[in-house]
């Protein structure tokens, strides 16, 4: 069985929110809540200011706190690893929200149930990519089997240093990032925000301001 996951290359995300919009359309997500959004952090001062875009969504953790917290068993893991909410079993106790360190779960104000990213399970079951992946103009999102070394995501994970959001939470996310500027660790959590206090030295040898984007992308 495939171990589905997503790789997000922060070097190529331009913060266009096409992923957020595609997700909103796909699931008719109400105003004010998100299954998938793009946060950002800023660093430096004019004329050296720089902004980094950070797409965030449910991490479909291997050790999912929401799944262990849910008292009614409404949150389940599918055989392919996707963590989904069976809405009929949700009693809106919000323990999953309190347990998730990523703030990835919201209460739908219209349906009155907990909801979150499903990795577009209805699409992936038909062999399609999630809506956010299809919508990304820079192809910064790659979806697939993390255990397939020949697949695109497997190759990219093998060829690049990757990281996850909040590794200290010990949740083993299936959403991994290529983040040479180490912007993820400076991401404040409460909504889309700017953090001008962040200091991002980047990888050794890539001091701030000297980072070179991948070939073909604007600096």
């Amino acid at each position: 069985m495939a171990r589905l996951g997503m790789l997000i290359d922060l070097r190529t995300c331009i913060g266009c929110h096409a992923c957020s919009v595609a997700c909103k359309v796909e699931f008719d997500v109400p105003l004010g809540v998100f299954r998938d959004t793009v946060k950002y952090v800023e660093t430096g001062t004019y004329p050296q200011a720089k902004r980094f875009f950070l797409p965030v969504l449910c991490n479909h953790c291997e050790d999912a706190p929401c799944l262990k917290a849910c008292p009614t068993g409404a949150i389940v893991r599918l055989p392919n690893g996707e963590v989904v909410i069976n809405e009929g079993d949700c009693n809106v106790n919000r323990f999953c929200q309190a347990a998730c360190p990523y703030g990835a779960i919201y209460i739908d104000p219209e349906a009155h149930v907990a909801q979150k990213c499903t990795f577009c399970e209805h699409r992936t079951a038909q062999g399609l990519a999630p809506a956010c992946v299809d919508a990304c103009p820079t192809r910064c999102r790659i979806f697939g089997d993390l255990d397939d070394p020949a697949g695109e995501i497997g190759r990219k994970v093998r060829d690049n240093p990757t990281t996850v959001w909040k590794p200290e939470a010990g949740t083993q996310p299936r959403v991994v990032y290529i983040d040479p500027a180490r912007a993820l660790q400076h991401l404040a959590d409460d909504g889309v925000q700017v953090d001008t206090r962040a200091s991002m030295p980047g990888e050794p040898g890539l001091a701030y301001g000297q980072y070179t984007p991948p070939e073909g992308l604007p600096r």
Binding site: P71, T72, D89, N91
Partner: peptide, 18 residues
């Protein structure tokens, strides 16, 4: 009914709330 669901559901006994 939502409270009753929490009492009657035995599918996740690993949850402290359950």
């Amino acid at each position: 009914a939502r409270f009753h669901l929490m009492v009657a559901s035995f599918s996740n006994l690993g949850s402290p709330m359950s």
